[in-house]
Simulated assay, not measured.
Amino acid sequence: MADKGEKTIGELVSELTGEVRVLFRQELDLFTAEMKEKLVALAKDGAAIGVGGVLLYTGFLVLLAAIVLGLATVMPAWGAALVVALGLIAIGAVLVLKGGKDVKEMDAKPEQTVGALKETVQWAKTLKFTSSRRRGFASKSGTRKAI
């Protein structure tokens, strides 16, 4: 029989099962939060790439309009169109390059979750070691040995 203050094996197993469930839920919540954070960053970078692409395309169209105006009539109006086109192209190129660089540098691996899982494995190994020592606690004759 268990002394006062000691838990039975059934109670310990039940408590361990409950703690493992809580730990698993916490690991899943951490993974979910970390992946949401990475998806938000990816969405922002994707938006920058998209806006940059639209500006590059717009700049190209304005550049074509400047070339057409310049060739059709030799007037100063094409100079203004050329300046606008080059400005849009420069801004678009900067946005596309920045967004592409950020996407390449992003680490999609959930670092916090991996670290927490490694800690959990270490914890489980210590439990295994502790439980294997408990088996040897009682001698074959049934008397208890001091630790």
Rank of each mutant, 00 (worst) to 15 (best):
M1L: 06
K4N: 05
G5F: 10
G5K: 06
T8D: 05
V13D: 06
S14R: 12
E15A: 15
V20T: 06
R21I: 14
V22P: 00
L23K: 09
F24R: 10
Q26G: 03
Q26H: 12
L28Y: 10
D29S: 13
D29V: 00
L30W: 01
K38Q: 11
K38R: 14
L39S: 04
L39M: 09
L42D: 04
L42H: 09
G46K: 10
A47E: 13
A47N: 08
V51F: 09
V51S: 01
G52R: 04
L55G: 03
T58P: 00
T58H: 09
L61N: 08
V62N: 02
L63P: 00
L63S: 12
A65N: 01
V68R: 07
L69G: 01
A72T: 10
A72C: 09
G79L: 14
V83Y: 05
V84Y: 02
G87D: 01
A90Y: 10
A90K: 05
A90M: 04
G92I: 01
L97Y: 04
K98F: 01
V103W: 02
V103C: 06
K104H: 02
E105P: 01
A108M: 08
T113A: 14
G115T: 07
A116N: 11
K118N: 11
K118W: 04
T120M: 13
V121S: 08
V121A: 12
T126S: 15
T126G: 03
L127K: 15
K128S: 10
F129Y: 08
F129G: 00
S131W: 14
S131K: 09
R135K: 12
G136N: 14
G136E: 15
S139H: 07
K140R: 13
S141Q: 11
T143Q: 11
I147K: 13
I147V: 12
